[in-house]
Design a protein around this nucleic acid. Structure first.
Lengths: 159, 159
DNA sequence: GATGAAATATATTCTAT
DNA sequence: ATAGAATATATTTCATC
């Protein structure tokens, strides 16, 4: 359950699956690791069961799928409550991520997606009902995400 | 190329692939849409080629894979340059996302992942070399992301 | 871990509606 | 644009070393 047992093979697997989770087979990854596909499959199962791999998801361009609005909501919640509120926040329609911030008065960063501004208002309302103050709202103009590049150098072992 | 042609079937496909991009086949999705697997496959190809689906990626728990540090870097870049800098920023080791913010002096939000604080310093340095000022750094205590839930109600067509 | 064979599932192509 | 059928590939499962 610890996080220490990530070796070269695991790194290569993580890198491959971050690159393309749908069209790469265990055999393809095995070629890169120099092991067999059954080994890769067992490793993947372990990574899944230990929670290192949380799942596999299509990366959707919300802009091109009818939801052009992306907004950051900086919130303030009381520290003791904050952690427990995260699941409730994720339940709010349009919310795609919640981050607890260590420093600052604005200790919660909520990201929401929608069709238009009118979709954001009810989100702020729902947050208020959870006892969370929305201190600031910032519209996101563009958004690029990529896999972490720490797994593509399996030569340097992490352990 | 427009973003308007997302119908019920597409929404169901997007929802399914966001839920599990690796272990769901076109046939499985076809059962949900009430169409055939060959139809689903063609729809997926279209969604991919129009850029609605940007790719498929394993969601990795960086905390459990040896990279417990997540940091937000609020930056300031001159507006005309900002957009063009995004690819350069993504090239920096440890950077996982770049967001252009519409309002505020801090008009760029960079998210980075690393093993320890010492991994963040060179990132700030690299940003400086691009002519970007790091105005603020905030450590992320916890981070939860989920698929947008707008695709799980295919009853209401978006068009 | 690795390997090989059997069983399954999946993708491709072409035809038709 | 969707569906169906036939073929070809690919993938997993499982027993074995």
């Amino acid at each position: 359950m610890a996080d220490a047992e990530i070796d070269k093979v695991d790194k290569t697997i993580l890198h491959a699956l971050q690159e393309d989770a749908r069209n790469i087979s265990s055999g393809d990854i095995a070629e890169r690791t120099g092991t067999s596909d059954s080994t890769v499959r067992k490793r993947i199962q372990r990574l899944e069961s230990t929670g290192v791999i949380k799942g596999y998801s299509a990366m959707v361009d919300y802009q091109r799928s009818g939801y052009p609005l992306r907004m950051l909501l900086y919130c303030t919640a009381s520290i003791p409550e904050r952690g427990g509120l995260v699941p409730d926040i994720l339940d709010i329609d349009g919310v795609v991520s919640v981050q607890e911030l260590v420093t600052g008065e604005k200790n919660l960063l909520v990201t929401a997606v929608g069709e238009s501004d009118s979709d954001i208002t009810p989100i702020a309302q729902a947050l208020l009902e959870l006892g969370i103050t929305v201190a600031d709202e910032v519209l996101v103009r563009s958004h690029e995400t990529q896999p972490f590049n720490g797994f593509d150098r399996p030569s340097e072992d992490h352990d």
